[in-house]
């Protein structure tokens, strides 16, 4: 479903801050794969996701989604294949617009936007049903401005928006990191449920090793712009936190001291 092939990316080329973030990154995802991604700060996790989403161009290499080469497609054109949830709950929704308007915008992802009405009556009803699945009481607040919602509610709404017309690929970029533990668990459970129900091919970055082990059918660890560990299936089921830390020690070497702190227990 997703093929990242020989992707390189360097930021701030030619300055003292030059940083090679991705070095010959290769990754293949099968349809329906739910992959968790872990790694320390600066390992290149977010950069990888942003490359796939088209936020910035690759230096070299190619990215293919379901057989379609998207390497040169701008971000808004790739969006027809990709659903995204961001780390910051403010990023995924339009605060000054109503809940139903946000959903209507998301429903038209990848479709031409002409002079037809921005939101139809039938849609409104379907959104009410859709919001009920969140169990947050949002179905009674269709016309509330999204800016009035809490971070957790906004993230849950973003999740709905990202998955509402079955994207070929779902990118979750530490989407629960900014939430309190209870809300984070709720959003994460919901994510797993939606991914499973719709059999979505998913890449989920997390800083939490337990979550990385608990969710998904495959786990990859990144360090220094490369994938250093890749397990799936039964092997992943048996994985423990101690295993992960061990792997981390080997791959990260001297960076471990700071990275271990970043990985929450």
């Amino acid at each position: 479903m997703l093929d990242i092939s020989k992707v390189y990316k360097t930021f701030n080329v030619g300055t003292v801050n030059e940083k090679r973030v991705l070095k010959n990154l290769n990754l293949h995802l099968n349809k329906g794969d739910f992959v968790t991604v872990i790694g320390g700060n600066g390992a290149g996790k977010s950069t990888m996701l942003n490359m796939v989403a088209g936020v910035y161009p690759v230096d070299s290499g190619s990215i293919t989604i379901d057989g379609i080469d998207v390497t040169k497609l701008p971000e808004h054109k790739r969006a027809q294949y990709i659903g995204r949830v961001f780390q910051d709950p403010m990023t995924g929704t339009a605060a000054t617009m109503q809940i139903e308007e946000n959903l209507a915008l998301a429903a038209r992802r990848g479709k031409p936007r002409g002079l037809k009405t921005g939101i139809s009556k039938a849609e409104r009803e379907s959104y009410r049903e859709l919001l009920k699945t969140l169990d947050l009481g949002l179905e009674d607040r269709l016309t509330s401005k999204v800016g009035l919602l809490s971070g957790g509610q906004r993230q849950a709404l973003t999740l709905l928006m990202a998955t509402m017309n079955n994207p070929k690929l779902l990118l979750l970029d530490e989407h629960t990191a900014a939430l309190d533990p209870k809300t984070a668990l709720k959003v994460l459970t919901l994510s797993a449920k939606i991914v499973e129900e719709n059999n979505l091919t998913t890449l989920m970055i997390t800083h939490n090793m337990n979550d990385a082990i608990k969710y998904g059918n495959r786990l990859i660890m990144m360090s220094n712009g490369r994938i250093v560990f890749d397990v799936s299936g039964e092997e992943k089921q048996k994985l423990t936190k101690a295993d992960l830390l061990e792997k981390f020690k080997i791959s990260a070497g001297e960076e471990l001291a700071s990275d271990r702190v970043l990985l929450s227990e």
Binding site: A53, E75, H76, K77, A79, Q80, I82, R84, F86, T91, G92, T93, A94, A95, T96, M97, E101, A104, L105, A106, R108, R109, G110, K111, R113, G114, L115, K116, T117, G118, I119, M161, A162
Partner: peptide, 22 residues
């Protein structure tokens, strides 16, 4: 309209708009 809504979205949140294919 769909187009008008997408213009409002552009003003409200650029990153979201692009992620939604606008």
């Amino acid at each position: 309209t769909e187009m008008g809504c997408s213009i409002r979205a552009t003003g409200s949140n650029l990153a979201m708009s692009r992620a939604l294919g606008i």
